[in-house]
Design a protein around this nucleic acid. Structure first.
Lengths: 206, 206, 206, 206
DNA sequence: CATGAATGAGTATTCATTCAT
DNA sequence: GATGAATGAATACTCATTCAT
């Protein structure tokens, strides 16, 4: 069942990873639709059938990519949320974490966000509703983390009573926009600080 | 060979508009890729060749749509910006205007935003760089309006010195997110007020 | 809507017919599965899309073929059945008619019969059950015609009481077998006569 | 690298049989084309390579199946033919034997018959002409057995002089049709009797 | 100008077969 | 012998675009 390659070739686990790596690049560059399996296998240096040995179809390949890339991020986020830092500090730390993740995966996530909510309500999308729901869940979970911090802040009296959901979405959208518009640059920490600053204290002169 | 038209001009313009209206609906529902010319002409009740008489190709049809739909909005925005209202009031008014426009055109704009920056650097995309740049320009112009208001506020001392570009993008992203996530509801004015509130004064308890 | 070609090219109605003719040949030679659209268009000297303008898919192309080829035969058969000939004469005439039709269309019908009842009960066949049912109906109708003659014969006392359905199927199968095994030769009338002879009077020496 | 087998021979034969059994089921259910090696090995609980150790390819697997399944039937048929029964009795006995065999193997034989003559003259078929000829031979042999009985009957004066080949094919076709159209039911003996009856004495009232 | 028949490049997916272990 | 990961040729179908009428 398993052919152990002690190393040498290092190509056993590779095939699957080669494909995922190639898919990552192509999907990021071209978006879901314009990415073709042919391009992916060319880059992965493998046969077409091999892709279908590991992934049931193009969509599931895409989904797997999303899932595997985001897993470490999700873990780090969950851990951070549960840390005992004061909420206002946590806000900035969370922003930093998001920025780092999205900067690294900007292109793929752009694609994912588009596919996620797809095309209105109609539903003729390639993405089966079931699959799309999974994307949405992943997304909501991230927002949910932000909401948690805000709730904590309100409970501790350092954040004013406000619509937590809307605020969380707002903060999230700002982070994403900074990344997608390439307004972040190398100074992720600085960017995080200024996002936190405006989010917490507003732009108006007090 | 000869098609007699009672009122050449009038009917002529009509065909074009029929196509644009149909295209608007189909693009909004299906997104750029899944929208087909066949669907559009079925809805527009016209022939396939006619589309290509008025628009050089699918992409340019899409672009024209964007341009024509946004023209009135742009005008209204420009006027508002130049009005003599105090900046903090203007901020809220601008948000309101944006919200109204995006709520009305949510689906088409979702599509447009995706296509806009689209596909990284590659260039094999359908969208020629030149075309894509036009999208971006339109976009930047909107953001530019927001920046103007902020500058005005800073000049008048009611807004603190901050990175105006980033702030404008941030505000813009929040507006868009509220619309796309359907967090607006029917109460556009209320939503605008609370967005402005947080944007200006932050979420932190003072 | 219609572009009248007075003649000259004679290619307007042609396109569809060209495709049908080509499909007829290819399906006959290769069977349903091994026939490819590419071969068909090569023979029809047309583009791939054209096929899909006229026929929704490969299966429906096949079905249309069957339908159009059999229509004249069905009409002739129905007429014959209603003629006032004595039953024993009719039996021979019907056999003749069947033979002529199947000899002419042997290959296509071989394919059709295979697809018709398909593959046991499972149903993973390409042919959607609905479509397959249509094939079956066509088939049953033909058998039904034979049954009618037998009933008539029984009513008139020239055919003995027997299981009409089984007998009709039996007669039908003999006809088909003669054709498919190329036991007919050019002497269709002679073959019909001897089939009728054995069917009516058996092989046993009285 | 080394797979210890307790009883090489025994297990060896087993693998082969497992594959044949599985192939029998799958081919019967799906037909030759839609049957996949993957399904077969899944059912046979063996590896894909193993199939190719025992059979050179899919087609030869199919052929072997036909050959091995029909061997006992052929033997029984040959024996019956040589028995000293009177011809008219033999005819019925032969029909019974055929019915029993085909009822048991209806689905596989349906497939086989289609593949047998398959694809006209072209030759691009998977089935090499040589292979196809073998199918045909098997088939002709069965018919030949029927012919023998008829000849015997003619020699003994109980069957009238007729085209023996055509009659044999006719009888054969009736048997097969009864099976494929599921007109047999559980009463094989009764069905055999009535087939024999009509075949020998015809449907006409004497 | 309006039309729609014709077109073919482009794509996801299947599956028999090979061969290194 | 047994295995199954890797492979790629083969194939149905889509849809933007053209051009003759």
């Amino acid at each position: 069942m398993k052919y152990h390659r002690e190393s040498g070739e290092d190509d056993n686990r590779s095939k699957r990873e080669q494909i995922l790596d190639a898919a990552y690049q192509i999907f990021s560059q071209k978006g879901y639709h314009r990415a073709t399996i042919d391009e992916i296998i060319a880059l992965a240096d493998t046969g077409k059938g091999t892709v279908y040995n590991y992934f049931v179809n193009k969509e599931q390949l895409f989904y797997t990519l999303i899932r595997e890339k985001s897993a470490p991020f999700e873990a780090a986020l969950a851990e951070l949320i549960q840390s005992p830092e004061p909420p206002l500090v946590k806000v900035e730390a969370v922003i930093k974490l998001f920025l780092r993740f999205y900067v690294r995966n900007a292109d793929l996530w752009r694609v994912m966000m588009h596919e996620m909510r797809g095309f209105g309500s109609q539903g003729e999308s390639n993405l089966k509703p079931e699959q799309r729901e999974k994307y949405r869940d992943w997304f909501r979970q991230s927002i949910g983390m932000l909401e948690k911090v805000l709730h904590e802040g309100i409970a501790q009296g350092v954040i004013r009573e406000c619509d937590v959901t809307k605020s969380a979405y707002g903060l999230f959208s700002v982070i994403v926009m900074m990344v997608f518009q390439k307004l972040v640059g190398d100074d992720i920490d600085g960017t995080a600080k200024s996002i936190a600053d405006i989010f917490l204290y507003g732009v108006a002169r007090q």
